[in-house]
Structure formats: C-alpha cells, structure tokens
C-alpha cells in the first residue's frame, strides 16, 4: 500500500523538507523556507576535536530535531513522536501508522539508505525522510533529496533507524497530529528571527555562531596535522564544498534559503526592511559559494600549502565579519 494523496517533493534540506511535506499533507500551505526560518534553522558551529568525528568539521544548521520542536512551539502544530528500544516494536508501530494512512517521518543513519549510490553515503544519524507506504518487505520512502519516491528494504530501514553512536535515532518517528485553527505567523516569524540572531551573535559558547565561524577561520590552517596524507587533506578540504552546498543546504550553507525566508517574511509581517536584508544575505551567500568553489579547486589541484589555507582562512574571517554586521542589522530590523 502507498498513501495515495501524499505529494512527494524535493527539498533543500531533509528535516525542513520532511516537516514541510507533513504539514502540506495535513493541509497547511507553507513553504520550506518559512519552516526553516520560523524554526531558526540558520546556524554555525565548528568542531575542531570531537570524539565522534574522525576529522574537524562544521555545521550550518541548528541542532537536529530542533526544527520540529521550534515549529511546534511557534506555529502551535502538534507532532506525535515515538522512540523505541526494541526494533520489532518500532517496526510494528510504523506499520500501524501506515495502515492508518498516516505519512510518518523517520530519523535514520543515511549510510544504510541503499537507494543512494554507495559513494554518496556517509554515516550520519540525523537524516530525516517520510515513510509513505509498504509493499511486501519494502517500505516506500519520500526522501527530500530524491526526485522520485524510492523503495527501501525493511532490514535497511531498521538498520538506519536503530544505528548506534552519536545522535543515535533510537527508532525515532513522528507524524502530524494536530493543526491549529489559526496561526499567528507574525509572532512566529519574529520569534524565529530573534532566536536565530541570538544563536549567531550571543550564544555564549566559543565554537558556535559568529565566534564559531572565527574559530573555523583560525583553525582551518591546522587541518594538515589531522590528515593522513595530501589526498586525505584534499578530501577533507573538498568536503567544505559538500557541507556548504550538497549536504542539503539549498546552497551557500543555507544562506540562500534563509534569504528566501526573509523575502517571504517581509510581506507577511509588514517589515520591508527584511526584504533589503534578504538581498544582502543573498550576496553574503555568494561569498560562501566562493569559499565552496575555492575549496574544491585547491583540493582538486592538491594546492594545499600554508598560503592557500591562509587564503581560505581569510575568506572565512570575512564571512564572519559580514555575517556579524548582517545579524546585528536583522536584530534591529525586527525591534
């Protein structure tokens, strides 16, 4: 069986895309950028030495799962959530929800999603998708990163749902439970922006927000000492491009999608200043894209000497400076 009226749609990001799909299916006409912006999705964090990661890395969105909880708080929608210790119980509950024609979002380790080519798969426990049907021993999946609905073996879905390690999904699933009769978008948008500004400017942790960006700029020159050899360093430097562009960001580390949110929000809250700021953020995103392209180029050419890493560092410092000014202006614009 497959839930017939579920409209599969690609999205920039797996979590905001899945939430948007569930809300749209439930009858709420909302765009992915609005979900992302209201949920304060934009963020920055740098992890230089973390036991869970084999190499320094960074993130450009808020903590996985927070988009859902922030959307619940700010829009007044209710998602029913479940997690499990027992995989059999986890599968049974999922099957029961599908039998009731309820599209159900699942958190999985992306590595086990074998509809993805193996060269694209990485171990990351915070991939979100919607399960929209079941045929024999296969589940029908709506994955926002794929143009079409795909099939996945029950065993692979179980492996993905019950992978261990950092941010282990524990079989986590959720579905839309209730939509409010009336939504106060004005308050939701302002709260979403305020929290995003707090994350970027004021969060008192040195590796998060703008300070995290500066830490990234400072520490990227130390990356060679973590690498096995030049090819490993090249791979990790080129991953900057993947993290900013390919890993579900909508381009430029979510900056383009957040600019779209601000443009849409400007009319909804009657603050034309947000429209100007959205244009500014689009240009800031172009700068991030230059970093992506630069990283890919020097990685490919194995041109990874101290001078090139310093140049990369300066480009990141520059983004930190412009984003600090931008988020201060944004913070002022919503007062």
């Amino acid at each position: 069986m497959i839930i017939q009226n579920f409209n599969h749609k690609m999205a920039a990001h797996c979590e905001s895309g899945t939430i948007t799909s569930l809300l749209n299916h439930g009858g709420l006409n909302i765009t992915e950028p609005l979900v992302f912006g209201i949920a304060s999705g934009i963020f920055f964090g740098y992890f230089h030495k973390m036991k869970s990661f084999a190499f320094p890395t960074f993130i450009v969105r808020n903590k996985p799962g927070q988009m859902r909880t922030n959307i619940e708080k700010r829009l007044g929608v209710k998602f029913q959530t479940y997690d499990f210790n027992n995989p059999a119980k986890g599968q049974q509950t999922l099957d029961q929800l599908l039998d009731r024609n309820i599209p159900t979002a699942a958190q999985v380790d992306f590595f086990y999603m074998d509809y993805v080519p193996s060269w694209e798969r990485v171990h990351i426990n915070v991939h979100f998708l919607a399960v929209i049907g079941r045929e024999d021993n296969k589940y029908i999946i709506s994955d926002a990163y794929f143009p079409k609905v795909v099939e996945l073996d029950a065993a692979s879905l179980e492996k993905g749902r019950f992978a261990g390690g950092n941010m282990s999904p524990k079989g986590f699933i959720f579905h839309l439970d209730k939509l409010p009769s009336d939504i106060d978008y004005n308050t939701a948008i302002i709260k979403g922006i305020k929290k995003a500004c707090f994350y970027m400017l004021k969060i008192p942790i040195p590796f998060l927000g703008i300070r995290g960006m500066r830490m990234f700029a400072r520490k990227v020159t130390e990356w060679p000492k973590f690498a096995r050899d030049t090819e490993h360093l090249s791979h990790e430097i080129m991953k900057i491009n993947i993290l900013l562009e390919d890993q579900g960001t909508g381009g430029a580390g979510f900056r383009f999608m957040y600019a779209t949110f601000l443009q849409q929000a400007a009319d909804m809250v009657g603050k034309p200043g947000l429209k100007e700021l959205s244009g500014e953020l689009m240009k800031i995103g172009d700068g991030w894209r230059e970093i992506s392209l630069f990283s890919a180029r020097i990685g490919k050419n194995r041109d990874l000497g101290p001078d090139k890493l310093k140049q990369l560092s300066e480009m990141i410092y520059d983004r930190a400076d412009v984003e600090e000014r931008f988020f201060k202006s944004l913070s002022q614009a919503i007062k």
Binding site: M10, A11, A12, E32, P33, A144, Y145, F146, P147, M238, N241, I242, E245, D246, G248, G250, G251, F256, M257, A259, T260, Q263, S278, M282, S292, L293, A296, G299, K300
Partner: peptide
C-alpha cells in the same frame, strides 16, 4: 539532483532543481 535557492528573473527568490556541482566537476 538537489534543490538550490536562487534569484529568479522577476527578483523573487525560490527553489530550482539542479545537479550537484562538485559531483559534476570532481
């Protein structure tokens, strides 16, 4: 394939479906 947010001809920002730049080139 992936979704990229861009500025359209009418000045509005929105999504397009496109290919991965890094996979296409590298």
């Amino acid at each position: 394939q992936m979704i990229l947010y861009v500025e359209k001809d009418d000045g509005k920002y929105g999504p397009i479906q496109t290919g991965s730049y890094i996979s296409a080139n590298y």
